[in-house]
Nucleic acid binder design. Structure first.
Lengths: 256, 256
DNA sequence: GCGATAATATTATACGATATATTGTAGGAC
DNA sequence: GTCCTACAATATATCGTATAATATTATCGC
């Protein structure tokens, strides 16, 4: 009832990557309570405004400074700490961790990165990781898929072709297409990784697409992948997925 | 000063995967404060004792029930929420999320999984992910490595050969060997992923090895990988890394 | 100058009170 | 009879303060 009122795109992405990560995502919509401290702090850290080694003021001071209670600030710090961004120690204060300890692939961190215009370098890194993981995942999936999954992908592909990626329904079908394939790997680790990266990258592709619509027709790549998947041809699936990702990368770079 | 007093192995692993993830890890050493609620709850959820959909008692009741303050319980819930394990909503209470929303690759979650004897299925999934990611990472690294990194890996390999994997120093050198290679990829996303998985898997291999020491000599595999890396031969590096992981998998399965 | 010890600042935890949001229910309109 | 609207109950969200634990820092003694 209220989710539908929000920006459809943002709401959907959120629901894909995490049906609701507590108060933080909820407030990211814009209005609602005045919290969202964790997100704001995270963005400041990720953007480099608060560099590694930076020590925050004491909890009491900082809470007053940003106008929230100490309890709320502490809970925000706990969230950031859980994602490896900061670390709190008695007497020493709370400080920003070195980048190496950040959980960069955490769904929330990914979302927050993209909320603050990710660096081109990081985007390339993500695509390189996709190019590393997903073709192999497609090969595994093709070898293990069930007939039900083939059918589910066929339906998703059909819906995608009917609506096109310019519509909400079409993009949803696209996500479903990839999600079914991921689940066919029967590998929870791969599913967790690929789904969050995909959701994060969907952010950019979608919001870039607002300016100038995608010219290329994405259906042929997907159909090739589907055919390999349906045939259970692992190598063909690997190749088709790699090609699909390369095209997606080219699309985002072209529009950058 | 205090870290050295703890169990060397556990302390090192912790420091590798995250130099100190707040109070939670600290308490996992055994003593210290009576918190560690987040870890205990996480283990219960990961082990299936608290299945998805389970709703916790109200914060007031539950805090009293487990003997901590409501503030502490809330902070613990925030940590779990940040990792996608639970979700809290006014009036509805705090409930366990469906597995699909768990951040399985989070360093802490991995550590906690392994603390509670991970399922064989999950271990296989992780190795399959490693087999997907790391060979390609090795290939990328070989293409981009600097001479300094070759030198650093040579030293690590040498130290590893001198001490053997039965010693603390030898295992540390092993970790360094792999870490240098990962950093040579220049890809933050790949580094974040592979390092946390490696750290998690080191848990099992180490503690299994306490029972019956590893018979196989790991140096030859590593030397092959090093040679490919030093020569900048991407394909050879890919192949060597895949072989190395397969052997590691065979070791853990043999001892299982 | 160095080491042990005490002082101190800051986080960690605890507790009670208030604000706020969501859900479930009841009531009314069509 | 079904749907929508308004309201109330309840649980989380936030707040403010007090106490305990602890790591750093400084001081004192050797």
């Amino acid at each position: 009832m209220f989710a539908a009122e929000r920006d459809g795109v943002a709401a959907r992405i959120n629901s894909i990557e995490r049906a609701g990560a507590g108060a933080l995502i909820q407030t990211s919509g814009g209005r609602r309570m005045r919290g969202s401290v964790a997100q704001q702090l995270a963005v400041m850290i990720l953007s480099g405004e608060l560099p590694p080694g930076h020590v925050f003021p004491t909890e009491l001071d900082y809470a007053e400074q940003i106008g929230i209670s100490r309890s709320s600030l502490r809970e925000a710090f706990r969230v950031l700490s859980a994602k490896g961004l900061v670390e709190s120690r008695p007497k020493a204060g709370t400080r920003v961790n070195p980048r190496r300890q950040w959980s960069l692939l955490d769904p929330d961190l990914l979302a927050w990165q993209f909320a603050a215009e990710p660096s081109a370098k990081f985007l390339r890194d993500l695509f390189e990781l996709r190019l590393t993981v997903e073709p192999n995942a497609a090969a595994i999936a093709a070898a293990r898929r069930s007939d039900d999954e083939v059918e589910a992908m066929r339906r998703a592909l059909e819906k995608m072709a009917r609506h096109g990626l310019a519509t909400e329904e079409g993009r949803l079908a696209d996500q479903q297409f990839h999600m079914v394939m991921l689940e066919a790997t029967r590998n929870d680790a791969i599913i967790a990784l690929a789904s969050s990266i995909m959701a994060a990258i969907a952010w950019t592709t979608i919001y870039k697409q607002r300016n100038h619509a995608l010219k290329r027709d994405p259906i042929p790549d997907h159909r090739l992948l589907y055919d390999a998947f349906a045939a259970g041809d692992a190598e063909a699936a690997r190749h088709a997925m790699a090609e699909l990702i390369r095209l997606a990368l080219a699309d985002t770079e072209m529009s950058a």
